[in-house]
Design a protein around this nucleic acid. Sequence first.
DNA 1: ATGGTAGAATGTCTA
Length: 259
Amino acid sequence: MKFATWNVNSLAVRLPQLLDWLAANPVDALVLQETKLTDDKFPTLEIGEAGYQVQWFGQKTYNGVALLSKVAARDVVKNITGYADEQARLIAGTVATAAGDVRVIGGYFPNGQALDSDKFVYKMAWLDGLRAWLATELKTHDKLVLMGDFNIAPEDRDCYDPAAFVGQTHTSPQERAHFQALIDLGLTDAYRMFEQPPKSYSWWDYRMLGFQKNKGLRIDHILVSAGLKPLVTACTIDRQMRKLPKPSDHAPVIVTLGD
DNA sequence: ATGGTAGAATGTCTA
């Protein structure tokens, strides 16, 4: 069983890469972020022909998320219940797997832009809303996976130059406290369950040869509930995708449960 | 050193 997350940075541009990736990497469920498509433009036909059911939630120009699954997702929720949001940033559904029902949640967490920005205030409020809603989701879903672009590098080792990020977003104590609060709900960072290569990142800036110099951040995460954790056997970042022509600035992250 | 690239959209914002 596999679940994955990928910030595609425009599904219109990345659709051929997505279809190739799915053919090579069959998954039970995949969440996408930054589809940047209104719902009427969503490529349902192509994804269906690839053998996946899909739920989508988009808006014009920015944001937009989707949930692909082999089996149709049930009880689909768009955005955080209890947190009014103008932006399309979260989609959740229950997916039947060999291990039983799994609640799959895909999120495109706010970027925050700068610590003194209104967008950072929004990021903090969004994270408060997420935590409150997740607490209730966990009461009814023993097996839950929260995946997506968190826009938070949880530890210094998840940032290519922690000193350079002091005073900026993604590594701030406030953001890391929010990440820890999600962990404290009973979730586990699947990537850190295993020994991983040093300087492992999931995002690299398009500018200044970020990928070539491996100047990246690990901000795309897969958190598993206590009911799923014993099943997790691997978690990897598919950095090969960042090497392709016209890449997304993010690489997919994949978790394997069981064989 | 405050640049640089990519995407949506066609101004300029977001990342």
